Measured scan of single mutants.
Amino acid sequence: MASQGTKRSYEQMETDGERQNATEIRASVGKMIGGIGRFYIQMCTELKLSDYEGRLIQNSLTIERMVLSAFDERRNKYLEEHPSAGKDPKKTGGPIYRRVNGKWMRELILYDKEEIRRIWRQANNGDDATAGLTHMMIWHSNLNDATYQRTRALVRTGMDPRMCSLMQGSTLPRRSGAAGAAVKGVGTMVMELVRMIKRGINDRNFWRGENGRKTRIAYERMCNILKGKFQTAAQKAMMDQVRESRNPGNAEFEDLTFLARSALILRGSVAHKSCLPACVYGPAVASGYDFEREGYSLVGIDPFRLLQNSQVYSLIRPNENPAHKSQLVWMACHSAAFEDLRVLSFIKGTKVLPRGKLSTRGVQIASNENMETMESSTLELRSRYWAIRTRSGGNTNQQRASAGQISIQPTFSVQRNLPFDRTTIMAAFNGNTEGRTSDMRTEIIRMMESARPEDVSFQGRGVFELSDEKAASPIVPSFDMSNEGSYFFGDNAEEYDN
């Protein structure tokens, strides 16, 4: 783990906690998980779902989305002020799938948001429990990260689609708070800032007046979040320049895209947490497990152990491969979309394939898809080993990566060399080191050039047997250095459309 220093740990961010010791953190995270579980059980009762239907990941996603929508204050306010045809701002819903006479049927349900809020609060001892809501947002974000390569979004903001390893959390809503900021990748933060800068260039009043003052505060806050992700002084200094700019424009845009590229080699610290679907927490609570009393951590053995003992089902389209669908969801559960496939294969105990080789589309089923041909199958979400999630980018030494994705962002704290394609990355730096950030740029390029592919990161860190909950005997895996390590390699994943 990167030293926490003055930073709060993510469990504290996750639970809005002030400084807590490890036991208190485990208890408050457990409380959050228990609340999600209780809410899910109650919703299944309301909807009269069978046990099997309640364990269907598509039903879980609909129920999670309903509660997130019920608590989305800004959108609710907007919907009330701008009524649109056929949208009731006070209601929320989605597809629920039921097994009827041996076939899967889709039923569109509609609930009062007020009623959903009441059920959620009741499951969370009367609190709004925003930490639990954020947790579900991060699960949705991790699922998107594993399912889609955001080529269009990258290109629109002047970045290269091969930089997708920097895009963790790119679909997280803005209201996801400190826990959300911690899991956002460098590219995601750059993209958010670039969008602001572009608006400022096109709209003279963007930075002016009372609204402009708020915009400015948001801009500086985002700059500080991004600065905190960088691990070298030169990158941090460049972020200070971007933040202090009187009138952010093209120079800042250039600096930010430069920094994003540099992060492929001088990786930023991005938190990883295993956020599971509500249909995993519900049955665990129903079986009598007391998360608050037992304590829970999002970055240790607990999620692995929970998945070892969970039964989750998914709808499967006619030509999809259930094992591939399982891999997709497994990666999402562990926030591992940008991790090295060699490491993932070792931990999972079966070969993890790149996205383009998977015969599976996303987990969600569109409303126009034919239910007649839908089957369902068990998702295999178990693992051979477990490993500690990392909050750091690993040290800054790398190795060759593949054509589709030119770097990785480690999820697990496991000893290995970190793949990246130096030639491709360095070719993108057209040696432009003039301007006010020239000395920093020169320094950053120097550090990137001296990074050695064969150097090892996370020295001495290994994986653990599932029986080793105290992480007492690390097993340090050895990897084939020459092997392909990137998930979005030469990829044809669908595009994420909101």
Rank of each mutant, 00 (worst) to 15 (best):
G5T: 09
T6A: 11
E18F: 04
Q20F: 12
V29C: 15
R38K: 03
T45Y: 08
Y52Q: 02
I57W: 08
N59E: 02
R75V: 04
E81R: 00
V100D: 01
W104N: 14
Y111S: 08
Q122A: 00
N124S: 07
D127L: 14
A129G: 08
W139F: 12
N142I: 08
N142G: 15
T157D: 01
P161L: 07
R175G: 08
G177Y: 09
A178M: 00
A178W: 09
A181W: 13
G185H: 05
V186P: 03
G187M: 11
M191K: 10
M196H: 07
N202C: 08
N205Q: 01
N205H: 10
R208I: 03
A218P: 07
E220V: 12
C223L: 11
N224W: 09
K229L: 10
Q231F: 00
Q241C: 04
R246W: 11
P248Q: 11
P248K: 04
N250E: 08
D255H: 09
S269F: 05
A271F: 03
P277H: 11
V285Q: 07
A286D: 11
G295S: 08
G295W: 06
D302A: 03
Q311N: 00
V312G: 03
Q327N: 03
L328A: 06
M331S: 06
C333A: 14
H334W: 03
F346A: 15
F346W: 12
L353C: 11
G356W: 11
N368A: 08
Y385E: 01
I388Q: 04
R389G: 08
T390P: 08
N395C: 06
N395I: 14
T396R: 14
N397Y: 03
Q399N: 07
A401C: 09
G404P: 01
S407W: 02
Q409L: 01
L418Y: 02
F420N: 14
D421L: 04
R422G: 09
M426K: 10
F429V: 03
N430P: 00
N432P: 14
T437L: 09
E443N: 08
F464H: 01
E465T: 04
L466K: 01
I475P: 05
F479N: 02
E484S: 01
F488M: 07
D491Q: 04
N492C: 14
Y496Q: 06
